[in-house]
Amino acid sequence: MKTLEKTATDYSIEMIKDEARHLVEAGTVSRHQPIYILCQYIPAREWVCVECELEQSDYLLRDQIGDLIACENWDND
């Protein structure tokens, strides 16, 4: 019997931004909430990797999600 165990994913800053953008577009989180809210949507064992990547990219957990996804494309300009 094979045991399938998911290993921790290496999160790039682009992956984190994409996930945050998706959650904002879905209305799950607000652009004005702090980045640490994202920990509710990322597995706990992987959150440490996310925190490290955010720190390396000069983001603080108290920064707003909008700061993380500031570069957005608007379809109706």
Rank of each mutant, 00 (worst) to 15 (best):
E14S: 10
E14T: 08
E14L: 12
E14P: 01
M15F: 07
M15A: 13
M15C: 05
M15G: 03
I16L: 05
I16K: 02
K17I: 01
K17P: 07
K17N: 04
D18M: 04
D18L: 10
D18W: 04
D18S: 14
E19Q: 12
A20K: 14
A20E: 10
R21H: 15
L23N: 00
L23A: 05
L23T: 03
V24C: 09
E25K: 06
E25G: 01
A26F: 06
T28C: 05
T28P: 02
T28L: 06
V29E: 04
V29P: 08
S30E: 09
S30D: 12
H32E: 13
P34H: 01
Y36T: 02
L38M: 13
L38P: 13
L38C: 09
L38K: 01
Q40I: 06
Q40M: 10
Q40C: 11
Q40F: 06
Y41T: 10
Y41F: 15
I42T: 13
P43R: 13
P43Q: 08
A44F: 10
A44K: 15
A44T: 10
A44Y: 07
E46F: 05
W47V: 08
W47E: 00
W47M: 09
V48I: 10
C49R: 10
V50D: 00
V50I: 07
E51H: 05
E53T: 15
L54F: 00
L54V: 02
L54I: 01
Q56N: 09
Q56W: 07
Q56P: 03
S57I: 03
D58T: 09
D58L: 11
D58M: 03
Y59S: 06
L60I: 04
R62N: 06
D63L: 01
Q64A: 08
I65L: 12
I65Q: 08
D67C: 08
L68D: 02
L68S: 05
I69M: 00
I69A: 01
A70F: 11
C71Y: 05
C71A: 13
E72S: 14
N73S: 12
W74S: 15
D75R: 13
N76C: 07
D77L: 07
D77H: 08
